[in-house]
Design a protein around this nucleic acid. Structure first.
Lengths: 240, 240
DNA sequence: ACCGCGAGTTGATCCAGATCAAAGTTTCCG
DNA sequence: CGGAAACTTTGATCTGGATCAACTCGCGGT
């Protein structure tokens, strides 16, 4: 589905992209004021409901976006339906692959999401002309590469219990940083999505979460709401 | 081990980096002639024996390098010894993470390797000053990101047989491109390394290779030397 | 040529996680 | 408020790949 045509719950008023600059630095923040103005005229603020696609695997999207709020999952699916989530993205990440027409993966809203959308042609041109923008995108690519490789270790060499702990740790880390040792957060993913991120089945994910709860590493209310009393304890489960 | 101190079998004469330019485009090829001259004065051609480290995980390397010949594996190891190969690199790939002091993974020569080595400080400065160089490194990062995510699908969702077929396909693709449907190549990895790349055990890798041989998808002479009579057949094993 | 050792294969058995099956919750919508 | 569908948990059983254990092959060194 093309996001420019997606019907968000509040698709009424486009908001100029200038607001990105105030809140985030990744894309809009690095533009010069003239360029920002150019982009602002062409960009739109969009809401995307949880579960709808922003970019489809194998499709040609004419838009890039910048995540303002919410969580986006990047997915690869095989012809027979097996699928693997390959990354989670949070504000203020950039979604899309500059200069490449066809996406090899899909980007889907895991939670309700707000994005800032802008036309591909325009941004491609701006990237070529703006070293700071290129540097910024290069930085994000390297960050994603590190995350991907860390996750490869998780997928290839960790046990089911360690995998689930790794996921909770990842989410907890990206939820607003907590000051205390206790961390509280909402899971942006269903059990099925967690399974697809960890290379497990739903049932195994559920059982391991139960195990973590019974062993006191986490507390749970309402399936999606998690409390980690002691983050160090969970980190210890992951490394060795 | 610091590569500048590594004792290659032919560590005698440093060779100016200009030769990189003739053969490859990734790093040296994008430099202006003045910059190339600067770099050339500081760079060294090195041979690294199979099995020795180019950059150690957690270490601080003061050098970057450019692969001229051979295969380099990027590894992550856990405190308890479990390990995962997260990428294979071939000529003319760039090895190292610009602007980052400490490496989160190790780079090790899988085969005998020839690299072109240059000081970190100098290259960092050149990247900042040369948009083409930045673009080039950005491109490689994106290429590696795609490869990493494709491999995540392999690690998370493919069976042992599909994993082994994926690996053979990957190697075959990077061996010099063949014109015929028949592909012949040498494995740059031992069974143990293949296992660490695929998240399997040595025994399972061995059994699956035997299975592929018995089913006629591949032929084998001398353990490391593989013949794929029909590449399409192997690609079919991987996708669905 | 022979020896010794690391690399690879093969077989037997085990077990972590998958699969199959059935409740129990939650959410959402009329 | 009720009822259905989607999501989650839990239980029973099965199995792909791990583990344990020989054995064989090929290579380098003397």
């Amino acid at each position: 589905m093309d996001v420019a045509r997606s019907k968000g719950s509040d698709a009424g008023t486009p908001v100029a992209c200038a607001s990105c600059q105030a809140r985030h630095g990744v894309v809009c923040g690095v533009l010069s004021s003239g360029q920002l103005k150019d982009l602002g005229r062409h960009s739109l603020r969009r809401k995307v409901d949880a579960g709808s696609e922003i970019v489809a695997q194998g499709s040609e999207s004419s838009f890039y976006s910048n995540i303002m709020r919410g969580v986006v999952k990047l997915c690869k699916v095989m012809p027979d339906g097996r699928q693997q989530i390959v990354d989670l993205q949070f504000a203020p990440d950039f979604v899309g692959r500059p200069f490449v027409r066809e996406s090899t993966l899909s980007a889907e809203a895991a939670t309700d999401v707000e994005i800032c959308v802008f036309p591909r042609d325009l941004l491609d041109r701006m990237i070529s002309e703006t070293p700071e923008l290129r540097r910024s995108l290069h930085d994000q690519a390297l960050k994603e590469l590190d995350a991907a490789r860390e996750w490869m270790l998780t997928l290839g060499r960790r046990t089911a219990e360690e995998k689930v702990a790794s996921l909770l740790h990842l989410i907890a880390t990206h939820a607003e940083p907590q000051t205390a040792t206790t961390t509280v957060f909402d899971l942006p993913l269903s059990r099925a999505e967690i399974a697809d991120f960890l290379g497990l089945t739903i049932e195994t994910v559920s059982r391991q979460i139960t195990r973590l709860r019974k062993s006191g590493v986490i507390r749970i209310e309402k399936f999606r709401h998690i409390i980690v009393p002691n983050m160090d304890e969970m980190e210890r489960m992951i490394s060795a």
